[in-house]
Computed example of a mutant assay.
Amino acid sequence: MQIRSMFAANYRSLKSIRMDMGSVNLFIGENGVGKSNLYRALQLVQAAVRGRLAYEIAREGGMASALWSGTRRSGDPVRVKLEVELLDEERAATFFYRIECGLRPPLMAGFVFEPQIKEEELSVDAGRRPAVMMKRKGPLIQVRNETGRMNDYPEQALTSDTAIGLLGDAGHYPEVGTLRRVIDGWRFFHGFRTDRDSPLRSPCLAVTAPMLDEDGSNLAAVFATLRHTRGDTVDLDRAIGDAFGGARLVIPEPMEFAEFSLVFPDFPKRQFSPRELSDGQMRFLALAGALLSYRRPRFIALNEPETSLHPDMLPALAAMIATASTDSQIWIVTHSEALASEIEARCGTRRKRVIRTDGATWIEGMRLTGMMDDEE
């Protein structure tokens, strides 16, 4: 199930932006134009399906910090609005999910800057016309039952609850459950710790790891799963060899813990442990775990993956992104023109340049509909 389009309004620098999405989505721009806010909006959609939207916005400083601070039309509701459209090719169906949250009314209960969920809706279009499966306004939730009728859900939602989180936990609503499982599986890799105490540098418990955790703490288990469960590290070996001048990854069969090391051509009898590797080398290995794991996420977001990497590693990184794009939808935010060019050459995509227009984040050459000027 791929994201076909996204919409965000009144969130930080995103005044109102709708954008079509492809298999590989490549964004480049200067600091401060709002590149990270674009994919942070998708992170908030994921937080909503997990029932943690209010918490995630509170972590940013609350609604006072999250809301668009530019000019608004008088009388418009002061709300963050997020929408995603996902295409399920197997079921020939399109899922539409929308959520709006805002501030507490002056005379209502609740914390002053706590996000309050105002509206939510999930609809599914299976070829005739969209059918609303769930609708929420304030604390009241309506959901379509197995007979096709919209009924009131017996439990009222708290202002910080999301309806999709409550209904997903109930387990009786297959469309809600399907969308929730898909979005919950998205992965956002927006920086790996590479200091000496980083989890990347330590052995991890020997538990089968089909995909990398967002903090990279199960990296050694991801490598061990590829080598000893799948029995296929061809892409991984090629990427490491290309990035590190012919280096070889050593992955012993795990006992209580999983671990790995590198052997370089100049020192063929010496195994270098993760604690001996540079920050750039560890970051590349983490990206390899994210992009080449046994079971890749349906959506992978990478924020400035070129950070700390030697320029010679960028072609190998772009090649890994191209490999991952055969199974996953990829979102890359980068400052590097060189990396963008490598990705364009391997993936056949076009970079989107993020700019500021009247204080709002926008994509150069994009129409209001979300389509680029050079697209048919």
Rank of each mutant, 00 (worst) to 15 (best):
A286G: 11
D235L: 11
H190T: 15
P265Q: 08
A288P: 09
R296T: 12
D266V: 14
P265Y: 02
E256W: 09
D235H: 08
Q281E: 15
E214T: 01
F284W: 03
G165H: 04
D215L: 00
S261R: 13
G216C: 08
F264D: 10
A258C: 06
R238Y: 11
D195Y: 02
R270G: 00
M282C: 08
P252N: 04
I164E: 04
G171E: 04
N303C: 13
P252W: 01
T229R: 09
M255C: 11
G241K: 12
E276M: 12
V250Q: 12
P265V: 07
I164G: 06
I183C: 09
A301Q: 08
R196C: 00
R270C: 04
Y294I: 00
L291I: 12
I251A: 04
G185D: 15
G289V: 07
L236D: 01
M211S: 14
A206G: 05
T208F: 03
H172D: 12
D169C: 06
G280P: 09
G171Y: 07
R230T: 11
K269R: 09
E253C: 07
F264I: 14
T229I: 13
I164F: 05
R230A: 06
D184P: 07
D195R: 10
L249D: 10
L200D: 04
P265K: 03
R296N: 10
H172C: 00
R283G: 01
D232M: 01
D197N: 11
T229V: 14
P297E: 04
S273C: 05
D266W: 07
L249R: 04
E175M: 04
P274F: 04
R196G: 04
G165E: 06
E259Q: 14
M211R: 13
T225Q: 00
L277H: 05
D213K: 02
A290L: 03
I164K: 08
D266Y: 10
S217P: 04
Q271P: 01
R196I: 12
R230Q: 12
F223H: 08
A239E: 09
D215Q: 02
H190G: 15
D195S: 09
A247I: 11
L205I: 10
T194G: 00
A239M: 12
F189V: 03
G280A: 03
S273G: 13
R275T: 15
L166K: 13
Y294E: 15
F192K: 05
G289H: 07
G216L: 06
A286F: 07
M255W: 09
S202V: 01
D215W: 01
R295A: 11
C204Q: 08
I251T: 12
A301C: 15
A209E: 06
D242T: 12
R201L: 02
L226I: 10
S202M: 14
Q271G: 01
L200T: 06
D215H: 01
A209F: 01
A206M: 03
P265T: 06
Q271V: 13
T233L: 00
V222R: 00
A206E: 06
L236R: 05
L236N: 06
R248E: 15
L179N: 08
A247F: 08
L292T: 06
V207Q: 03
Y294F: 10
I300R: 10
D197S: 10
M255F: 11
D213F: 00
S273E: 15
Y294A: 12
A209L: 00
G191W: 07
A206C: 05
V182K: 01
D215K: 00
D195N: 13
